[in-house]
């Protein structure tokens, strides 16, 4: 390891701290902007209906063991029989719903807004950091790294003798980007805790179609292993009471 570098305190005052502060403020701003831009869609009757059916089926599945066998069977048939069960979707209808989903412009617009509100500030901040703060060492990471990280972390510093743990402002930016997520979830509440990967997943599930989740729920209901829990509870109560008595 080369001898310790002494960094200018001006770097701390004008790069390190402002960068962090700006990123925190941008995160807060983004949260409120996306809150403002969230448009209220008038919910479609059919979609709400299907969603409620799914919720009810899920409740049945979750609480299956607490009701008598007969009640469970009759409820299951009510949800999943092949003629007029609530979860049963005819073949032709499913395709139709999907097509309708795709052609709904409101949905795409909402998705677009959400993604833009994430991408634009990130791009701008990255460009800002690159433009103003490149070409010098801005921070030192307190753990050693291998040479492999040099090209990534010491971008714009063309010195091969500097220890790899000294990093440029761009890597400080990335560290902030990933590390501040926890802080945001603390100061902004849980809504912001959804991280980028989850957003990506959402983007992947763009063509979400309710009939698919209906049939998935139906399959889930069909394979429930019914096992009445209450007899076991009696045993447990018996054990507890015996312990109390003895």
């Amino acid at each position: 390891m080369a001898e310790d570098l002494v960094l200018d305190t001006a770097i701390r005052d004008w790069v390190l701290i402002p960068l962090s502060v700006v990123m925190v403020l941008i995160g807060v701003l983004r949260y409120f902007v996306s809150k403002l831009m969230r448009s209220f869609q008038f919910p479609d009757l059919k979609i709400v209906k299907e969603g409620q059916v799914i919720v009810r089926a899920r409740n049945l599945r979750g609480a299956a063991n607490f009701i008598p066998p007969k009640s469970f069977r009759s409820r299951r048939v009510y949800f999943s029989n092949e003629e007029n069960g609530l979860l049963f979707v005819p073949k032709g209808q499913a395709q139709n719903a999907q097509a309708q989903m795709f052609s709904d412009p409101n949905m795409a617009m909402d998705m677009m807004k959400k993604n833009l509100s994430m991408i634009i500030p990130q791009t701008l901040t990255f460009a800002w950091v690159n433009f103003f703060f490149s070409g010098f060492v801005a921070a030192k990471i307190p753990f050693p790294l291998t040479q492999r990280f040099r090209s990534m972390l010491q971008n714009g510093i063309d010195l091969s003798t500097v220890d790899v743990s000294y990093v440029s402002s761009r890597s400080w930016y990335f560290l902030n980007l990933f590390g501040l997520r926890g802080l945001f979830s603390l100061i902004l509440g849980e809504e912001n805790a959804m991280d980028d990967t989850q957003r990506m997943m959402q983007m992947g599930g763009f063509g979400f179609d309710p009939s698919k989740s209906l049939s998935a729920e139906k399959d889930g209901l069909d394979i429930v292993q019914y096992d009445w829990a209450l007899p076991k509870f009696e045993h447990r109560a018996e054990a507890v009471l015996k312990k109390l008595v003895s």
Partner: peptide, 9 residues
């Protein structure tokens, strides 16, 4: 990640 960030800072 939060730990590393605040540690470095």
């Amino acid at each position: 990640m939060s730990f590393v960030l605040f540690w470095t800072f």
